[in-house]
C-alpha cells in the first residue's frame, strides 16, 4: 500500500492509492488531505487499488468533511472489489464516480 498526492493540470489534488486501501493507510491518507483547504476539488484515483475495507470508506468520509462537499470529490477508475464495496455503500451516488 502507498498513498501519493499530486496535482493534475487542472490544479486539482489527486490522491492515488496503490494496493490495499485499509486502516494502515490512515497516516499517509491524512497527510495527503490535511493541507487541503475547503472547496478544493479532489480526485481519488483507484486505478491501482486492489482492495478496500470499511476504514477506507470512513477515510473518504473524513476527506469529504475536510473538503466540505462530496460533489467536490471524484472517485476515479473504480473497478473490481473496490468498485463493488463503493457501490454497496452507495458512494457511487454520494460522490462523483467513474469506473475504469
Amino acid at each position: 500500500m502507498s498513498v501519493t498526492a499530486t496535482q493534475n493540470i487542472q490544479g486539482n489534488c489527486v490522491i492515488a492509492i496503490a494496493g490495499r486501501f485499509d486502516f494502515s493507510c490512515h497516516p499517509e491518507f491524512r497527510a495527503a488531505f490535511s493541507a487541503l483547504v475547503p472547496g478544493t476539488e479532489v480526485v481519488v484515483d483507484f486505478t491501482s487499488t486492489t482492495y478496500i475495507d470499511s476504514a477506507a470508506l470512513g477515510m473518504l468520509l473524513l476527506l469529504r468533511d475536510r473538503v466540505g462537499d462530496a460533489r467536490q470529490i471524484r472517485l476515479a477508475n473504480c473497478k473490481g472489489q473496490p468498485d463493488q464495496v463503493l457501490r454497496i455503500a452507495n458512494f457511487h451516488k454520494l460522490f462523483r464516480y467513474d469506473t475504469q
Binding site: 470499511s54 476504514a55 470512513g58 473524513l62 468533511d65
Partner: peptide, 12 residues
C-alpha cells in the same frame, strides 16, 4: 450503512 457510519465515527 451502519458499518460505514461506525467506520466514519471511528476514523473521526
Amino acid at each position: 450503512e451502519q458499518v460505514v457510519r461506525v467506520s466514519h465515527e471511528s476514523m473521526r
